[in-house]
Nucleic acid binder design. Structure first.
Length: 531
DNA sequence: TCTGCCACCTA
DNA sequence: ATAGGTGGCAG
């Protein structure tokens, strides 16, 4: 799979829409049914405020997880993703099929990873268990798909792949990779944002929706813990073909490596213990997964949000039903509206870099999320995960924010910028100690920039806010039927401002990545409070 | 735990 | 041919 794309395994999600859509169908996946949520659901979910309806046209959007079957295999064992200083790709790679987009409307697709809970895990006795509280979330970053902004026709034409997205444990990562903590669980989220005239988002009312497939949740590790996962990776990832083995191959290898005789045991085997199983996900924790079962369905939603909000997006939390609920599987979709306004002041954002969180992040850590929040809102969106999580505590991070503030973040970014992946932009250049990515400055700007950035910004900022502000419905509504996914939509009103600056660069290095936290911080206050 | 290097592969 | 993605392993 991996890459490939092939198959499909799209999970679907049917749902559709958030708002109202009449829904149609959902055809897609036959298998699963989701039910869903079809649009109606959405609506219902939306609960609260509900927004909209208007739909910005986000309502009929459906997202199907590609290769869902493979994801499910990993999920059943307890998916692990290697995180390295240089950045490592996710294996099953995150690919989706998107339907229901207006062919002529431009959208920005982006991903982020939010903490699934506030626990730190350990793997012993062939199973995962909670060992303590999660460390402070790292700066949340958004990974904007390189094709963004692009028309609905473009996105619908083929699978949308985030296979180049990389995960890192380097809190000061200058490349725009998504920063995670080892031994912590994360939930990937897809956000579909309607681009504004400038191809950015964030401006006034930015409509967006968030889709979550619970089977894509995973624990970040610096080396595989469960041998079963290692085997699944080797068996399915083309780049690991060298480790497959037929015995002969292995023996040879071993011999070479060791210079010894052939080992008897295949490498993989050796390492692990028995593995029995245990998928962390499922069981334990809080909710890692939402519903295991199923599918993810897509949700659709619409709303407009401010970019920030996006970031905040409904967090998974919201989305997900409480762990328990989650089981129900349904995907949930929520749609909400919000306005952004608040947000952080610009100043708030921090930069990740500022300090290295790495070590510690002391303060923050704990605070993270509120429990209640968990599933925390997505980092960016609703809350940022990162940010969010940290929640109040984020302060620590906040500092970071400070830096960030200057940053450009999403706002700054332009689609263009985002899209590119180029590595560092000049600004970012590596040289710096990392100011990088963030945003700052100076990059160019593209007109577009604002939009994306906005989103980004929003996200982060929003997060906090959102959270605070709106409660998402998380559950409230009934759980959506579908499963895995959740969708949120929102509208935001005033988007963030755009940032005047920037642009481009932000993340050049980052590539499409945006950091969320920044926003978050801003937000933080609120939600912390809220929470 | 985490990092760096290695052989092996894919693209 | 080069560039870059994999897990194994030693440290």
């Amino acid at each position: 799979m991996a890459n490939g794309g092939d198959q499909f395994g799209l999970a679907e999600s049917p749902d559709s829409d958030c708002m109202d859509s009449p829904k149609e169908t959902k055809p897609e996946n036959p298998g699963y049914t989701l039910n869903s949520p079809a649009s109606p659901q959405t609506a219902s979910r939306q609960q609260p405020a509900a927004t909209t309806t208007e739909q910005n046209g986000m309502e009929g959007i459906k997202v199907f997880l590609h290769d869902r079957e493979l994801w499910t295999k990993f999920d059943e064992v307890g998916t692990e993703m290697i995180i390295t200083k240089a950045g490592r790709r996710m294996f099953p790679s995150y690919k989706v099929k998107v339907t229901g987009l207006n062919p002529k409307t431009k959208y920005i697709l982006l991903m982020d990873l939010v903490p699934k809970d506030d626990h730190r895990y350990k793997f012993s006795d062939n199973k995962w268990s909670v060992t303590g509280k999660a460390e402070p979330a790292m700066p949340g970053r958004l990974n904007v798909h390189p094709d963004s902004p692009a028309t609905g026709a473009h996105w619908s034409r083929q699978l949308v792949s985030f296979q180049k997205l990389k995960l890192t444990n380097n809190h000061l990562d200058p490349f725009g990779h998504i920063i995670l903590n080892s031994m912590h669980k994360y939930q990937p989220r897809l956000h579909i944002v309607k681009a504004d005239e400038n191809n950015g988002f964030g401006s006034k009312n930015t409509a967006f929706c968030t889709h979550i497939f619970s089977e894509t949740a995973f624990i970040g590790v610096t080396s595989y813990q469960n041998h079963k996962i290692t085997q699944l990776k080797i068996e399915n990832n083309p780049f690991a073909k060298g480790f497959r083995g037929s015995d002969d191959n292995e023996l040879h290898r071993m011999a070479k490596l060791q210079g010894k005789d052939f080992p008897v045991v295949p490498r993989s085997t050796v390492r692990q213990r028995a593995c029995s199983t245990g998928s962390p996900f499922s069981g334990e924790g809080r909710g890692l997964r939402g519903s295991p079962e199923t599918v993810g369905s897509p949700f659709s939603c619409e709303n407009r949000l401010s970019p920030q909000e996006l970031l905040r997006a409904p967090p998974a939390h919201y989305t997900l039903a409480p762990p328990h609920m989650q089981h129900s599987h349904q995907p949930q979709v929520y749609c909400t509206k919000r306005k952004v306004g608040e947000n952080c002041s610009p100043g708030n954002r921090q930069h990740p870099y500022k300090k290295a969180f790495t070590g510690s992040s002391p303060s923050e850590g704990e605070s993270y999320y509120h429990p209640s929040s968990y599933p925390p809102p997505p980092p960016g969106l609703s809350n940022n995960p990162l940010t969010d999580s940290p929640s109040s505590s984020d302060m620590g991070q906040r500092q970071a924010c400070m830096f960030a503030s200057s940053e450009p973040r999403l706002d700054e970014l332009n689609c263009t910028s985002w899209s590119y992946s180029s590595p560092l932009p000049s600004a970012m250049t590596p040289m710096d100690p990392y100011p990088p990515y963030t945003p700052h400055p100076p990059y160019s700007s593209s007109p577009q920039g604002s939009r994306l950035s906005a989103i980004a910004n929003q996200s982060s900022p929003t997060l906090g806010e959102h959270i605070g502000h709106h409660p998402y419905p998380s559950q409230s509504a009934a759980p959506p039927p579908q499963s895995s996914q959740n969708i949120h939509s929102r509208q935001v009103s005033p988007p963030l401002r755009e940032y005047p600056r920037y642009t481009p660069n932000l993340s050049p290095p980052l590539y499409h990545t945006l950091e969320t936290h920044t926003h978050i911080r801003c937000v933080v206050p609120e939600w912390s409070a809220a929470s």
